[in-house]
Nucleic acid binder design. Structure first.
Lengths: 199, 199
DNA sequence: TCGCCAGACTAGGCAGTGTCTAGAATCTAG
DNA sequence: CTAGATTCTAGACACTGCCTAGTCTGGCGA
C-alpha cells in the first residue's frame, strides 16, 4: 500500500503537512478540506483519494501527533541521569509539546462518544506504554506491577492536566514547569514511589 | 437587560437547554444553529437575536458548564467530614462531571489561540478559586500562601488530567477514582501537604 | 511492445451550514 | 395611543463536506 508518487508527486504528505500548518494557524474549525486542496494546488475533490473523510484526515493528524509525542518522550527518557532527572525531562517534553501544539492536542484528546478502538486509540496506548517502560526496573511480583500501574496513571494524569491548563492558557509556562517538578517530588517521596524505587 | 418573554416565550433559555441536549447527543460538531432553531420551532435566523455568533452560543454553554461544575464542587466541599474526605468528594464530583458531560468539557477546555480573557476565563478562575477556599484554614504568611497555590495547582492538574483520560475513555471510571484517591493520599502525605495541613 | 486497468485527479452538483439583510410582528416606555 | 426598540421571519450569499461521472496517468501482464 501507499506505493509511489503518481500524478501530483506525493500529495498525501503535502496535505498532512499543510493541514498541520492550518491547524496551528486557525485551529480545528479553521481546517477545511477545500482550502487545504487550494493550498496544495489541486482540485477540491483530490484529497478524497487519500482521506475518505474530513474525520479521517483529523484522525490521521491525531495519530501522527501521538507518535511524535511518543518519540519526544522516548528521547527524554533515553537521556542520561537519575530517574528523577529523566522524569523531569519527560514532564517538560510533554508540557512543551502541549504548548506548541495546542490545537493538535485538542484533536488527540477530544472526547469520543464511541467505544475506544482504532489506530488513534492504539497510538495513545503506545504513548502511555512509554511511561510504563521507565518503571520496570524492578519487575518483582504482582504487587510491584500494580504499584507501577498506579504510579504511572497518577503521573500521566498530572502531566495531561498540566498540559490542558497550559494549552488553555489558564496557567503560564513557568507555573506548568513548577507543577510537574512538584508532582515528581511528591510522587518520589510518597510511599507509592518509595515502594517502586527503593533507594 | 433580558427582561421578559416576548414573542416566543423565553427563547434564549429554550435554546440553551436544547443546545445542551444536542451537545450530549452528537458532540460539538453536531450542534448546528439551524437544527437548534428547528427544534425550538423558530426560524433559522431567530437565534441571532440572542447569540450573535455560533461561537457566542458555545461560549455561553461553556460558561454555564463552569458555573455548574463550580456549584457541584462547592456542594462537595460543604459536606461534613475531614479534609481528606471532602477532598475525595471534590475529586469524585470533578471526575463525575467530566464523565457525564464529556462534550461540554471539550468546550470548556478547548485550546484558545488568543490571550485569556472574557467571561469564560472568569468562570474558570472562579472554579479554581473553590480549591483555594478549602485551603485557607491557616492563612499565615506568604510562605503558606505560596504553598497553598502550589498545592492547589497540583491538585487541580491531577483532577483535570484524570477527567480528560476518563472522558476520552483511556481509563475507566474505577481507575479514575483510584487515581484521585491516590493523588489525595500522596498529596496529604507529602511535605507540601504537611506544611499546609499540620496534624 | 502494447493494451489495459486500478488508482489519482478534475469538475460539477447537492444539501447543509453560518452569517447578513430587509422587513414584519410584537412588546414597552413615554 | 403612539413611537421606538426588540424579537422574529424570510430570503440571499458564500462556503463547506460529500457524492458522482468522467478524464488522465502510471505500471503491469500478455
Amino acid at each position: 500500500m501507499a506505493s509511489k508518487p503518481l500524478h501530483h508527486g506525493n500529495l498525501r504528505a503535502v496535505l498532512l503537512e499543510q493541514a498541520e500548518v492550518m491547524l496551528r494557524e486557525s485551529g480545528v474549525d479553521g481546517l477545511s478540506l477545500r482550502e487545504l486542496a487550494r493550498r496544495a494546488g489541486v482540485s477540491h475533490g483530490a484529497p478524497r483519494s487519500h482521506f475518505i473523510d474530513r474525520q479521517a484526515l483529523l484522525d490521521d493528524l491525531a495519530e501522527r501527533g501521538f507518535n511524535r509525542l511518543t518519540e519526544n518522550l522516548r528521547a527524554a527518557l533515553r537521556a542520561p541521569g537519575t530517574f528523577r532527572e529523566r522524569a523531569r525531562l519527560v514532564g517538560r517534553a510533554y508540557v512543551d509539546f502541549a504548548f506548541e501544539n495546542a490545537a493538535l492536542m485538542d484533536l488527540m484528546f477530544a472526547a469520543k462518544l464511541e467505544a475506544p478502538s482504532g489506530p488513534i486509540h492504539d497510538a495513545a496506548v503506545r504513548l502511555f506504554q512509554v511511561f510504563g517502560e521507565a518503571l520496570v526496573q524492578d519487575g518483582t511480583g504482582r504487587r510491584a506491577a500494580d504499584d507501577a500501574e498506579r504510579f504511572k496513571l497518577l503521573f500521566v494524569a498530572t502531566m495531561q492536566g498540566t498540559a490542558t491548563l497550559l494549552a488553555t492558557r489558564r496557567i503560564g509556562r513557568m507555573q506548568a514547569e513548577q507543577v510537574i517538578d512538584d508532582a515528581i517530588d511528591v510522587l518520589l517521596a510518597s510511599e507509592l514511589g518509595g515502594r517502586l524505587l527503593p533507594g
